[in-house]
Amino acid sequence: MANPKPRVKVPKKASKGEVITIKTLISHPMESGQRKDKEGNLVPRQIINTFKCEFDGQLVFECDMDPAVSANPYMEFNAKVENSGTFKFTWVDDDGSVYESEKKITVE
């Protein structure tokens, strides 16, 4: 399988105490385990089961996903920023792989 590529959109700058919107997308087939291939065999389930967003080590948002989340899972959520720092995004695959991405934000 092609290596899933995470894409994250975080504003570069924010004012202190502002609630910002973060958008994330990762390319992944999210194989539900319900689909059958041409020979009629069940395609085994392989999804991203957890997504996590941390800001300087503190948890901001977490999501447990089930097979009903669409392919290339998209997540939009908010974060309140008080100081400059780094957002860390983590996706965990059913096969144990972990995909990561980081974004810096400057608070003025």
Binding site: L59, C63, Y74, M75, N78, A79, K80
Partner: peptide, 12 residues
């Protein structure tokens, strides 16, 4: 830290 309890995603 979420600031607002809002989230959007796409589902099947």
């Amino acid at each position: 830290m979420s600031g607002a309890a809002e989230a959007k995603t796409r589902i099947r």
